[in-house]
């Protein structure tokens, strides 16, 4: 996929389209758009950067997955097998791009996966049917362009050869398949994201950590005692054991009594 940042207008259609396509629950994202303000009044600019799984050529997530639940298929898509995934989140730790998330147990839709890891699938179910991914379909600015890089006639191949493109964290050797045109350091750089996050963003993130059950028992709220949160996480973890035990019990029951 090529993302032409010159055309991205931060409309978030891609985010909503993707969330609707998969019923992605609140608090987790397969794709999102980072927004940054740059410069000093009145010479100020706004930059957007859509993010999603890079479908790396050398995906660390795949390498580190202990059960082969995530894999790279013959077409280069990095995909999930929900029925294999044990929810260990090794791959989440491994992905340098935050592209993965653990699906919460509570979500809308009866037969959708829960408590396993999920991520962008490059909409393989659409692509196999000759349709562009949902986020590309929806992209108002026309910033997201999808196609076969090996086909020199394709729009993506033309763009990659004609324009200056960059990928995220090239130094990690993951060889991403998502190319950005017109990338801006102010938003592409991960350290910058941390150093120059606005104070309100930190506040919001804190709210998020307090109210969104991440199932990882790892949320530390900035500005509050780390050890308090470590303790609270452990208490939450212990409190969650009976609930999970009930789940396991039910699964056994189903297995034995059908």
């Amino acid at each position: 996929m090529v993302i032409d940042l010159r055309k991205c207008i931060g409309c978030m259609s891609c985010v909503v389209a993707c969330k609707a396509e998969y019923g992605v629950p609140l608090g987790v994202w397969r794709t999102w758009v980072k927004v940054a303000d740059k410069g000093r009044y009145p010479h100020t600019k706004r930059v957007f950067m859509p993010r999603l799984c890079n479908h790396c050529d050398y995906p660390i997530c795949v390498r580190n997955c202990p059960t082969q639940a995530t894999f790279k298929n013959e077409d280069g898509f990095v995909l999930q097998r929900y029925n294999r995934c044990i929810g260990c989140r090794t791959c989440v730790v491994a992905c340098p791009y935050n592209a993965r998330h653990l699906l919460p147990e509570a979500r809308k839709g009866k037969n959708l996966p829960r408590l396993v890891v999920d991520k962008c699938t490059f909409c393989i179910h659409r692509v196999k049917k000759g349709l562009v991914p949902a986020c590309v379909q929806a992209c108002v600015g026309g910033a997201r362009i999808f196609g076969d890089l090996n086909d020199p006639k394709s729009q993506v191949a033309k763009l990659v050869s004609k324009e200056q493109v960059s990928v995220l964290k090239p130094e990690l050797g993951t060889s991403p398949s998502v190319y950005y045109i017109g990338g801006d350091w102010a938003i592409m750089d991960e350290n910058h994201s941390y150093k120059f996050r606005s104070r309100q963003l930190v506040e919001e993130f804190n709210t998020f950590k307090k109210n969104h059950f991440g199932d990882a028992f790892a949320d530390i709220v900035e500005g509050e005692s780390t050890m308090y949160w470590v303790g609270k996480n452990m208490a939450d973890f212990i409190a969650s054991i009976p609930h999970k035990a009930a789940g396991v019990f039910n699964a056994f029951k189903k297995l034995i009594f059908g």
């Binding site: 999102w32 410069g39 996050r197 963003l201 919001e204 990882a216 470590v230 973890f237």
Partner: peptide, 23 residues
């Protein structure tokens, strides 16, 4: 530098937490 701020982003949990560190 000072005048470049990230104003919006998605939020991500840290994937391995207290149980893992105790382990």
């Amino acid at each position: 530098m000072d005048d470049s701020v990230i104003i919006s982003n998605a939020f991500h949990h840290v994937a391995w937490g207290t149980p893992i560190s105790i382990y």
